[in-house]
Amino acid sequence: MRPAPSGLRTLLWRATRVKLVLFVVVAAWIIGSAVGLAARGAVSVSDGDVLAGGATEPGSVSALVRAHDCWTGSAPDDVSVPGHVVAGRGAGPVYGGARMVHLALDQVFAGTPHGLTVYAFCR
């Protein structure tokens, strides 16, 4: 027969079990999101010249992608989160930083409309 748990141990268990459950749920959500991102793989590319190797005029999508080490499919193995993005909002493609990366990821993977045309993600 086991002895009754001490009052301190019971108190600690009650205080931590909700936090433990929340931690497991959040960890599962993060892992599930990462697997979902990897499974989706390619970002839809809106400008055909990126894949076809077409126009490379300064400021074109192809020129920006080539100049900034970007990708249009699955991310390289050594990149967990892109640092930049090639995207546009009507005025043509631009090379954007952290704020635009956040908006682009949110639009591409969560479906939140931010009015961007996302061409590629970059290091």
Rank of each mutant, 00 (worst) to 15 (best):
A67L: 07
P58Q: 11
G59M: 01
P76A: 01
V50F: 13
D77Q: 08
A75Q: 09
V65P: 06
V61L: 12
D69M: 08
P82D: 11
A42R: 11
C70H: 01
S46D: 10
D78L: 02
V61Q: 07
T72A: 11
V81I: 14
R66H: 12
A75W: 08
D69K: 00
A67S: 14
A63H: 11
A38I: 12
A38M: 11
V45F: 05
L51E: 11
D78K: 00
S62D: 08
A39Q: 12
T72N: 01
A52V: 12
V61A: 15
V50C: 14
H84K: 09
G83E: 05
D49P: 07
A39G: 11
G73N: 09
T72F: 09
V43A: 07
W71G: 02
G41Q: 00
G54D: 13
V45E: 01
D47C: 13
D78S: 01
G41W: 06
W71H: 05
G83F: 11
D49S: 15
G48Q: 15
S74C: 00
G54C: 05
G73I: 04
V79N: 00
V45C: 05
A52R: 13
A63N: 13
C70V: 06
A75M: 03
A39E: 11
H68A: 02
S44Q: 15
A39R: 14
G53Q: 01
V43P: 08
A39L: 13
P82F: 15
R40Y: 03
H68V: 02
T56F: 06
A38P: 03
A55W: 04
L51K: 04
S74W: 06
D69T: 04
A38E: 13
T72G: 02
V43S: 03
H84F: 15
A52Y: 09
A63V: 07
D49G: 00
A67E: 14
G83H: 06
A38N: 13
S46L: 14
T56G: 13
G59A: 09
S46R: 08
G83V: 04
A75E: 07
V61R: 00
A42F: 00
G53R: 06
S62V: 03
S44V: 15
D77A: 14
D78E: 10
H68T: 01
S60F: 00
A42Q: 12
A75R: 13
P76E: 02
C70I: 03
D69H: 14
V61Y: 02
A67Q: 12
G54R: 12
V79H: 10
R40S: 10
V81D: 06
A55P: 07
G53C: 03
S60V: 00
G73A: 12
V50T: 08
P58K: 03
A75L: 09
T56Y: 09
H84P: 05
R66T: 11
H68D: 05
G48H: 15
A75P: 07
S46T: 10
R66P: 07
G59I: 01
G53K: 00
R66I: 04
T56Q: 13
H84I: 04
R40L: 07
A63D: 15
G41H: 04
G83P: 03
S44H: 15
D77T: 03
S62N: 12
L51F: 05
A42K: 10
S46V: 14
A63T: 01
G41C: 00
T72M: 04
C70E: 02
A42S: 11
H84S: 05
V81F: 15
V50D: 08
D78Y: 04
G53D: 02
S46I: 07
